[in-house]
Amino acid sequence: METKKRLLDAARMSRAFRRMAIEIVERNRGLDDLIIIGIRSRGVPIAERVAREIEEMEGAPVPLGILDITLYRDDLTTIAPQPLVKPTKLPEPIDDKVVVLVDDVLYTGRTVRAALDALIDFGRPKAVQLAVLIDRGHRELPIHADFIGKTIPTDRQEVIKVKLVETDGEDEVLLMEKGDH
């Protein structure tokens, strides 16, 4: 795959996380009943970053969880190999809480659909909100994000690569082109 463009660098990414954190606190008027849940795998470090920003801002930690959606995918029996299943870890019951789901890129919306199904099996949240670093369009389901780091119109041939210090050693977002081969 060929890199076409660097969409965000480290400084702009950390500003995006801070802005998402501010918007989450603003919209929910504080931290009461709030739980931040990262969707495995890249949503997890992003959720941690946003939660850290919220803690710095509000002076109190926000509960943080991890959601594994593998078993809720709609393409499980057609893809090979099977994705590795990992545990879901929720810090507390989600009943009557406001859950902010966090992922790196919002694209077709199918991951979020799976995440909603997975989440509902754990209880009945008061509300579920969605925070993504990048919204690239091309939804296949009626799903939208509440908090967006950056909106980027893309072509379906293009791939968005989110790199994070935790997993890739550096922070950047790249726009890449799928090769013909």
């Binding site: 594994d68 593998t70 078993l71 809720y72 499980l76 029996t77 590795l84 299943v85 990992k86 545990p87 879901t88 870890k89 199904d117 997975a118 099996d121 754990f122 209880g123």
Partner: peptide, 27 residues
């Protein structure tokens, strides 16, 4: 090792309030 690693992920399912996931629906 793959089977054992995968089983680690599944152990948590049995500890949930709803002990069911839709992975093999229709099979």
């Amino acid at each position: 090792t793959l089977i054992l690693d995968t089983a680690e992920g599944f152990k948590e399912v049995s500890e949930r309030p709803v002990k069911k996931v839709p992975a093999l629906r229709g099979q």
